[in-house]
Design a protein around this nucleic acid. Structure first.
Lengths: 202, 202, 202, 202
DNA sequence: ACTCACGGGACGCCCCGTTAGT
DNA sequence: ACTAACGGGGCGTCCCGTGAGT
């Protein structure tokens, strides 16, 4: 029985190095050598697990997406019971803004992938899919809330869903460039949640 | 005095090539050699006018910013008289979304610069300044409209200004990744303008 | 374990090319590309074995030093028995003057390194050390000869050791510039050996 | 009458910059741009006065030689009267060793030229001529001293002349590499002058 | 007399992918 | 499974020489 190594684990290890590197210095600083050094493995090993650099980046992107989902899940789980639609939505959106430490580390990476997706179709596909699924989820959330009377009837849930997600991405970028951005971003998100989940005047 | 050429013009020529290249293939595809080829000049010339690649990118960024302003100005100028605050604001925001051809060409470039600014402080500075000036302008616009009764009193103009600009950036990115994005983006902007410039129920 | 090659051997191969090149055209003609051509390998290989050009030159210097020692050793070994202190010293010194073919090839290289050491501290260190060790050796040689009565008591062995070595270097340079230099250099060395190893008048 | 500039003066100005640069960072650091910056003129001007870089270096070499002569002359002039042959010779030799400040600045430059002369025939010619003239001068000096009884008859003035000059060059190089070199060099020179100008035992 | 614009080439460094091998 | 050796090419930088032009 030969030495058995966990392929997936190795790939995760390497992808993590890619993420650290890209988050710190940008995607253009991700070279095979740097990745190998960052991961503490040989350059050959990196290329053993990823045929091409493109593959590696794509996998790293999926890893990052999974991490974002995980972080959102954790944020939702730590919410005080009972979980209202609004608090759930807020947890989801704040996880996309570099206010907490985890997001702050991943946001540059996320932006790097976004920017690359614009010119690299291979990356755009998964990103588009993920975005649409997320949007659909928010639409359903808002729709349910509207049915429950938490959201006024004149609110266009489709529009608001897309808006909130686009807004979150926009705020993320501004937050990364402007040092005062993160707190302002949270305030802005709350402002819009207040607006959407408005108590109707009695 | 020897042969005199218009330095600014040359720099513009080269910067234009940088923009085309970056818009087409991303900023990481902007190499001195490619720039020289794209501009139809020698590589030596490129370096005659830009000491360093960083200089070149920074200048190209300023050129692009100027072009965006110009496009906004043109859009505003072609508005039917009399120009309402809302139509002015709409012209400004739609110029940031890749709906028309001009913006569609520049948006990838803009995103590329945004992404690089996250990891390159030299680029972040000008970008931050420009963003704050723009925000201030929108704040004043909305404030005036509120004073004139076009915007309800309960609207937080500061929040809405920041939101609209972040939203525009977010929509731009989504529009670049999703082929259906541009039209959806315009609808979304109009939805929010409708909301902000709501006719109060008489 | 993958293909294993003798690193030292490769480095020697490349260093030899460096020495040939520098001896022929001067150190400033030593470029990575030229070295690769001269050694008959790819430029990538050169940089596989030497991280930096500085490293390469330093290694080449050590190789040259070793060669000089080797040549001296060979000269000493081929001396007729019994080996007198004076003949040993003469062998050592003549190995530093481009009279024989081997030294003639290495002398320009040696001078090139000397000149660079003046402005490159990284090179000066090893050179200084080697020089001091050599000087100490000659001092001991002369001291022993003095104790044995082969050298008059009024001779300052420290002075003479330093003088002989400086003289050898000076003669080497003159010999390289003046075509008649080499033979004159040998005569000069013998003149001083005669003087130092003077038979006292009975 | 057009603007008249002193060609020679300009060339001297530029050559001085070359000397400063080469003395500080080595001859390989002498580039047209650096020279222009160091001299405070435009690069074009440098090339106006020197057709080629080789020309420039050659001229700089002559300038340096002239300066050395001048420094020797000054040293001789400041000697206490009456000037003995020995003190004159000593002044001449010490001017070649980087003990005083002036020589310390020029020595690296001198070594750089020596090293280049080994591989650049254009530089070797003048250097050889200068060396032979100097040697002839010392021979005559020593010959006269011998005739006057200041130097014992058994001394070979030709040999000693060549030795002293080679020794001075060798000491100069060692002095540049070893921080203790300069003082040791002066001691060594005096040691040999003592030997040559030995008072015969009465 | 003097200068700028410009071309073209080289340099040192770095990087990626392949391959031969253990 | 994993690695080292290696080739080839690209990058940003620098530099020199020419020539048009004032």
């Amino acid at each position: 029985m030969p030495k058995q190594v966990d392929h997936e684990e190795r790939r995760q290890l390497i992808a993590a190095a890619v993420c650290r590197l890209a988050g710190r210095n940008g995607l253009q600083a991700v070279t095979l050598r740097q990745v190998a050094v960052e991961a503490g493995v040989s350059m050959g090993l990196v290329q053993h697990y990823f045929t091409t650099k493109e593959d590696m980046l794509l996998f790293a992107f999926h890893v990052m997406s999974a991490r974002v989902e995980q972080r959102i899940g954790a944020a939702v789980a730590s919410l005080p019971q009972p979980i209202s639609t609004r608090s759930l939505l807020r947890a989801l959106l704040t996880a996309m803004v570099p206010a907490d430490e985890g997001t702050a580390l991943e946001a540059p990476l996320w932006v790097a992938f976004l920017a690359r997706a614009v010119v690299a179709p291979g990356l755009a596909g998964p990103l588009r899919q993920g975005g649409q699924m997320l949007r659909q989820f928010v639409v359903e959330l808002l729709g349910a809330a509207q049915s429950a009377g938490e959201v006024p009837g004149h609110v266009d849930v489709e529009m608001e869903a897309g808006s909130l997600l686009a807004l979150a991405d926009g705020l993320m970028i501004h937050a990364l460039i402007d040092p005062d951005g993160p707190t302002a971003a949270l305030d802005t998100l709350d402002y819009h949640l207040d607006r959407i989940f408005a108590r109707p005047p009695t």
